[in-house]
Nucleic acid binder design. Structure first.
Lengths: 226, 226
DNA sequence: GAGTTTTGTAACCGTTATGATATAAATATG
DNA sequence: CATATTTATATCATAACGGTTACAAAACTC
């Protein structure tokens, strides 16, 4: 379900940095130090985007892409290059590429460009990353909102975490100690009553009319998602 | 409820061996050949421990864990690695991991380490013996309710404890002293009559019509579940 | 750094669980 | 049948608990 990005860079440090950063924002990555096995992988795997250094030791980037295109591989490409000369970008050398970013690059910018390219290629924005489903609710951990019967409700960080662990443990009664340990990691100095209030606030958010009893209280024990 | 261990190893043979061994000592396992869907599973399932090869083809283990930690996923991790150099272990490469074992590993040792980590982390994995069955009733110790002929009846903590010990000792007459000692642990200062009342209230809950005599009174002795 | 939002705590209050007690009912015994 | 003993039921008192609200502290935002 996640988008998979193939990265080619001969500098191992940069490669790792890229992989880590892209993974951390929810992409799957496949890293390569050379173009050696890339074509094969492109044929076998579902790759959504290629991110490659234009100045590889073995082959010039745009040449390689040209080759791919001739083989009917049309995966979008973003080039990374040390050359920041506008000329290069303009004069068609980046033929076949969908975007271009120069080293040293800002990771935020790169991610934005990646998103843009993917969006362009991907009509359906599959933002299905990091969502939890439970009955009629869909919890989006990234956006910090829960969608219940097609209405979106913004949640705070705490509310999100709370709902998340409740969904993860649906059907189980979670006592206050458990919740404190797992949500307020600073276990000790959190008042038990605090949980009551947090639960109350969450209940209020996800069920303002108070007609659906999502969260049930077991007196003397704790709470559970029924 | 069994503890659930998520395993990531690109070597299918090892993966199967691990799954088989851990299953046979009572753990539930979820095996993966790559980290591809792992994160989503971690979000959705209640995973108690991650066991992963540190040298996966697609990503270095500790990097992956670092990413997980940055996403507030704090499931404990044990790394398996071919590298047995003490250096690696020491120099913080296993940052975020809770333990480390080197290939080839002894299964007994691995299981011991798993136990140790789980114990350390274990959110008081309470005796989740969850449900007790008796005739047409199903007592859910977790939810504190008893299901009789498909209708759920909420019980209080005391009622639950009472019914639990009665089911555990079905067919045996339990005198009031026994019940006081086992249910009201504060043994002494509990009035014998209190048991009568508690039993009466339980009877009322589980059989409002008073047609089924679940709990029988043995005059001069105590009560039993027939 | 001012202003807004989120979050923890304390206080208050209604509710509930439950132990005790008084009384009624049931059961045993002679 | 009469009486004694045991148990069931009803009622009351109270302590514990959870929901609610208000407010202060902390964390974000611009």
């Amino acid at each position: 379900m996640k988008e998979q990005i193939l990265i080619v860079d001969d500098d191992n440090d940069i490669l790792e940095l890229l992989e880590y950063s892209l993974n951390s924002v929810g992409y799957d990555t496949l890293g390569f130090l050379s173009t050696k096995n890339v074509r094969q992988v492109l044929l076998e795997e579902k790759i959504d985007l290629i991110l490659m250094d234009r100045n590889l030791p073995d082959i010039e980037g745009s040449l390689y892409i040209e080759m791919l295109r001739s083989k009917d591989i049309n995966t979008p490409v973003i080039f990374i290059s040390a050359k920041d000369s506008i000329e290069d970008i303009k004069d068609g050398l980046i033929k076949g590429a969908d975007d271009y970013i120069t080293k040293p690059f800002d990771m935020q910018e790169l991610i934005l460009r990646i998103k843009a390219v993917l969006k362009r290629y991907n009509n359906e924005s599959k933002e299905l990353i990091d969502t939890l489903l439970y009955q009629d609710m869909k919890l989006d951990l990234n956006m910090h909102q829960v969608n219940i019967n097609s209405i979106n409700i913004d949640l705070t960080k705490l509310e999100t975490a709370l709902l998340q662990t409740m969904i993860k443990n649906k059907g189980r009664v979670l006592d206050r100690d458990y919740l404190i340990k797992h949500i307020w990691k600073s276990s000790d100095n959190i008042n038990q009553k605090t949980v009551n209030v947090a639960i109350k606030r969450l209940k209020e958010k996800i069920d303002p009319q108070r007609d659906k009893e999502y969260i049930k209280t077991i007196r003397g024990v704790g709470y559970l998602l029924v």
